[in-house]
Design a protein around this nucleic acid. Sequence first.
DNA 1: GTCAATTCACATGAAAGAGACCACGGTCTAGTG
DNA 2: CTAGACCGTGGTCTCTTTCATGTGAATTGACGA
Length: 399
Amino acid sequence: MAQQGLTSFFESFLKRDPLFRQKKVLQDTYTPEEILHRDDEIKQIANVLAPALRMERPSNLFLYGKTGTGKTLCAIYTTNHIIQVAQDKGIPIRIVYLNCKLRRVADTEYRLFAQVLGELDMQVPATGLPTEEIYNLFVKVIEQKKQIFILILDEIDQLLKKTGDGIIYNLTRLNTQLKNSQISLIGISNDVMFIDNIDPRARSSLSEEEITFAPYNALQLQEILRRRSKIAFKEGVLDEGVIEKCAAYAAREHGDARRALELLRVAGEIAERQESPKVTIEHIDIAEDKIERDRVLDIIAQQPKQQQAALHAIIALAEKRPEIIYTGEVYEVYQKLCPEMGLRPLTQRRLSDILAELDMLGIINAKVISKGRFGRTREISLAISEQTADKIKKILEKG
DNA sequence: GTCAATTCACATGAAAGAGACCACGGTCTAGTG
DNA sequence: CTAGACCGTGGTCTCTTTCATGTGAATTGACGA
């Protein structure tokens, strides 16, 4: 019986008219033909990179701006074009793009070089070799022929935070060793503060040129959404005001275009699932909710056991007393909780770091305060809705 | 009442250890001709 | 003779612990008005 129901479900699914024409246009892997409202930035990038076509080393370039302001998109877009020209004219330019944020990709010096070598068709082991060797191998590969080598490091702040700024120094110093080739760097960061916190020498060599990406405003977001939705959705599927609302939501969150597009896509998916003939404003609200919850649940599922235990302790405390919680209390509850979860309790020192990590992930709000005579501690509160916290608790209790 | 010293409860840093993972080279073993 | 299994060594990387140092304001207590 249930199976029959399933068959008819699939059949009616097929019969149903999809709202989407090309969903992939709304996904963030998609590179549009034309980038709106970023003409100046693209021109600037092109200006900096153009000397490469004359086999001169382009200045190192540093792009920064908040997430979803099109930094990566513009960088890739521009470099794609340059590569095309270079290929037509037979100019040896090599561009490698790396995202340093993804774990296990390029968050250490070793892995950075390993990744780059991988891009250059040189497979190297993920670990086990001395960094020095990888470094030399990299130099050898680059030096094989005369070329301009451009390395795009996305989310470079993550890399530098972990490895220190010596890596920039190494990379720029490399140019004095190289005879045939030249390397330039394009650093991309969405942490505006981070550039102030690195060594001034590294800073000046990294950002010989600097471009700031301002957030999109609501009107610009609307245009972007309109342009994309024309391709992504069938005609007349979007209800009045849907795009405006999407744009408004995203503009509130520092003009994040990626978020706006995701919102629209998820809203579309929800509408489709509800067999609604149109995407309405209500769908946006549901989508907003769902995205947030999915994001949080996803992050938590990926966390190691210890982090989960810490979060469990915080949720347990927050349930009892919704006011503010302090580090010491969390540690007490956490210690009791550990044996239940089959864990060995860590030191308070470590828990302190874990709390800071959870804060970074946006799951909790933790602020260091001084209570004067009564010491210094973190003021902790949950940064997620009660329903989400409840859901998390159930998942954590199941183990 | 004012002001500097004190004090608390952690935060924050640095260094070092444990254990997982991996490559590499050498040795051993079994299978093959 | 050779391919493959099986060490031991040396390397990276992540997560932790240990030890040390830092920190900001409420509190205290001395001081003077």
